[in-house]
Amino acid sequence: MSQPDDQDLRDPFAALRHEDAAHAPPLDTLLAQARRRRPAHRPLQRLVPALGVAAIGVLLAVALLRPGSERQPLVSLADARWQSPTDFLLRVPGAEYLQAVPSIRSPETVSYDSLP
């Protein structure tokens, strides 16, 4: 409860209360209006905001919780094999002979019998 020395505040509040009371709508009218408002139940109206919030939540969850959500490079440089566009110039006739090391027969296998 307010203190006795709060009369300076109590008076204007009492005046306000008096004015409000004079303009208060009758209870019966208010209850009748409230009851009339009751059938205006639109389930979609309640559902749409809830669905919107749920959709935003799902999108956020998918974006944040996706495994390996760190951005992946489009081309893996480690796996890529680069080939020079002028590689074909190195393909010369007889190149296949240069690919393999020629074998020379070992001296033990050489037969000297046939020598004169």
Partner: peptide
């Protein structure tokens, strides 16, 4: 319930304001 509401209705209107 309605009797109680009637008793406090004016004050409740002031509070709602």
């Amino acid at each position: 319930l309605e009797r109680e509401l009637d008793r406090v209705h004016i004050a409740a209107f002031g509070w709602a304001l």
